[in-house]
Amino acid sequence: MNLPGTATKAAKIDRLAELSVSSSDVRGRSLWLEAFSRLRRSPMAIVGAVIVSAFVIVAVAAPLLAPHDPTAQLWRGDVFPNRSIFVGPRAENPLGLDHAGRDLLSRMLVGARQSLMVGVVATLIGLSVGALIGGVSGAAAGMGRRLGRAVDSVLMRFVDMLLSIPALLIAISVAALLGPSLTTLMIAVGAAQVPIFARLLRGSMLAQSRSDFVTASIALGVRRPKVVVSHVLPNSLGPVLVQGTLTLATAIIEAAALSYLGLGSPDISRPEWGGMLADAQRFLGSAPHMALFPAVAIIITALGFTLLGEAMREALDPKLKK
């Protein structure tokens, strides 16, 4: 064996550093940042993001993109309104005309805007009201005092009640009160999501409340409301964000379903995909293109949000992925 100790100390340390497998190359990256970088590398997230951004761009720029006025009747000499003859896709109307002779493509583009608005606003309603109830409930239950538990109990029974009423019934009641409109649609769809968000946030907060880092904060002498705001809440938001993204997809589908049932906006200048589907139903046999295009659009958009939501779920909780 050759004599050790011949190399200088510095050389030894350098060599070691060179060959060491450092376990912490990453410095000072928060969990949110880590999740975001995982998201950027996920194929599922990329596909979802592409679909969603295409949808958003179309929705925002709809008036510029639409080749025709969505309300203008584009009959030409070969077609007569009193004879139910439908115009399918053709050069100047790539998706054809609808039953009233309006350009389907233009209506779809403008409809994207309505659908996006319904989806986003409904989700925001559901998320904010739900998170408010869930957050208050979770915080109250976490306080552990008699009053807190009572508040939690009352709120949760209310949520259970909401959960037991079908969304359709809520929607019809809202529509009865406010009349069918886009607002009705958004409130109805949003209301149906409230219990989901409330239960999710409360459960998540209760679980976090039992964690050691919360106990540690209390032991440090931090005031309870501050503990909730700085520790319990931030650690409970992940699932809510994921659910929010997934809800965007269901909200668009549900809004379509409700307008299909005639609870949507009666305003013909503001078409909406669900409403278009409802119109198409009467002509399904003779003009399938009228149903096909909105349906496909709804499916693809919902898929985009779902993919994004699932990818977020994985990114926020890497343990799920194997």
Partner: peptide, 25 residues
């Protein structure tokens, strides 16, 4: 245990070892 040296390069325990020498790598 996270302070390691890749296997092909030498003894994985070297970074934690009091008897570490260049030969170990």
């Amino acid at each position: 245990v996270n302070d390691l040296v890749a296997w092909a390069d030498g003894c994985a325990f070297a970074p934690r070892c009091d008897r570490y020498e260049l030969e170990c790598l």
